[in-house]
Design a binder for these strands. Sequence first.
DNA 1: CTCACGCTCTTTTTT
DNA 2: AGAGCGTGAG
Length: 749
Amino acid sequence: MSILDSLNESQKKAVIHTDGPLLILAGAGSGKTRVITHRIARLIGDGVVPPTGIFAVTFTNKATEEMKNRIVRLIGPQGSSVFIKTFHAASVYILRRYGEAIGIPSSFSIYDTSDQASLIKEILLQMRLDPKKIRPESIASKISEVKDRAELIDGADPTLLLQKNFSYDFHEIYEEYHRRLAANNALDFNDLLIKTVHLLRSGTGALERLQRQWTYFMIDEYQDTNYAQYLIAKHLASAGKNICVVGDDDQSIYSWRGADIRNILNFEKDYPGAAVVTLDTNYRSTRPILDAASSVIRNNVNRKAKEIRSHKGDGERVVWCRANNEYGEAEFVVNTIISLKHREGLSGRDFAVFYRTNAQSRVFEDRLRKENIPYRVVGGMKFYERKEIKDLLAYLKFIANPLDQVSMLRIINTPARGVGRVALERIRETARGAGVSEWTAISEGLIGGKIPRGIAEFRDIILKCRDSARGMPETRLSDFVEQVIEESRYVKSLEEEESVEARSRIENIGEFVNSVYDYQQANPDATLDGFLQDISLYTTEENPEDDPDSRGNQVTLMTVHNAKGLEFPVVFLTGMEEDIFPHKLSSDTEEGIEEERRLCYVGITRAMERIYITCAELRRTFNEIYHKEPSRFIFEIPGSLIEATEYISAGYQSAQPRRGFFEKKVYNESHFDVEPDDSIDDDNTPEASNQTEGPGESKFRVRDSVLHPKYGVGRILSIEGSGDNLKITILFGRSSKTFLEKYTPLEKA
DNA sequence: CTCACGCTCTTTTTT
DNA sequence: AGAGCGTGAG
């Protein structure tokens, strides 16, 4: 059986196991995804179950994509009929089919965090509370926190679950929030899971039908499931008990989102007779990387003790660098990338820069841009969160779901059509008076007196579009979307702005239309409801604007959370300072610190060949400069595994004398072999920062892009010598060449 | 009603 | 330092 050939003994055991519950404890880099995909392939290949009988959930869209691809690669096109989704997407699938039974129409809207916030803001205003004093976002997160709790899902009163020392009536807001969600025919992220649990428990026959559909269940990242997810899996698998869960308690990093590590720790109790397979051979990282990671995670008290074996063996030591400030940190990282590209022939895709918080990405982006190195930022401001995309989606959502008031309020005056505060108040009044929805007041023309023309305009746009939406599978989704853009005059009004910003918004809308085409391609009989619900969960998805052709050259930037499940030859774990990593807000409790430590463990174990751990001595936050201490986690790595260095850049300097960290171990020679002079020593003093190159004999400077008549565009790595002997070394692609300047006609590129 | 300026708050992590 | 929001003038 060829499918088993490439597996080790424990991997084989996990793949072959067929009936009954199975727990796979999969250490970092132990071939977890490989086991899951091979297991699925085996079940299908041996005719145990048809592809459509398998239900697999992962945690992110990215992981879902990856798993789909790998299964299709293993068993061909039939692999695409395996049901593989995130928990949230699976819930949407289930609710769309059977939700009517518990009063959820299939046209429900999904409210993301910002929709939630605007709804709560409305409520606060109605309750005469000041949204400036009480942040809607923080209420939203409190509500979400409550809804993650097991007690609530099992029927407890929400108010009892929160210490209620609030200046406001949390219970009242909570109730009103849910009344409004129901009135708007909308569900938030928590609801998707909770309502699915209710549906499965409802005795309406949905569970039985789903159990006829799926008989084998696979749950990835089980250590990060919350109670609702745990229940969904449990109910679905309750008939045949063919449930296989995979996880690693050391990589649980989502407790703040309600993930309960006990789900994995108690699996054997939950499912008596469960088989357990431990995967403890790491195929990803070199031994020093693994040793460093183990010596950090070992400090957690609350964990299953375990050791991971390195399959790969020796490699480079961990490089630790404390830069003078965040600019120095970024320079160090980017110079190291340039150097390794040159020295080892690596390309951009081999590098990843991790940070604890999204806000840290900027300095790295600036530096990379300065050096003309292509990069992509995963996460952060996502495509679907941009204003213009949210506006357009609000049109689509409101057309699909006339009860969705949050969307209506967003677009009624976007683009501006003269419907302001006063007009809105009138609409509200009328609606309240007549006891109808605001939209009904508008569409039925109930508003008396002179009404702003904009209101009628808005009504006509919506009615017209709703009309063509009805002809949907025949009217193509993409045509419909273009019609909405046309009717709403959204792009037209941006064009009139004639600003750079407006131009880029228009481009984004163009990208959105492209993505609609792609969606249509993949789903020939796409409906509006289905499209919207799928897209609402597409948050981690890469920005469609990323040029797929240049992907191979791009350095990846992301938070450590986003890095879970990925691997890179070279990893930079940055901002390793107290109060950042571990984060200040997690540092009060031992559990908080342990979770940060697991996060750190996740970060280190992403690296295959090399890891650089960096921090800054000074860092500017909120326009204020703070002195930073290195993260406690770095002290947990034995010095013998570390090669320490320093990096000093121009920009602001420490006012105090530098306090040597790892003083005795600081190696002064740099590990850059591409002209270290240029990158380090030159910038050593502020005066050097204007870059008038030493003797100033060349009209070029290091790092300039230049055009060579024969080799094309390259970058200057170094300039040395003087007079007739002035030599310039230029990097073209992966190789560099040295020229005597006086014989080489170079131009600035 | 719209635009411009100035004030405030920001930074955990994400489905 | 920057974005987003609210206030006040046109």
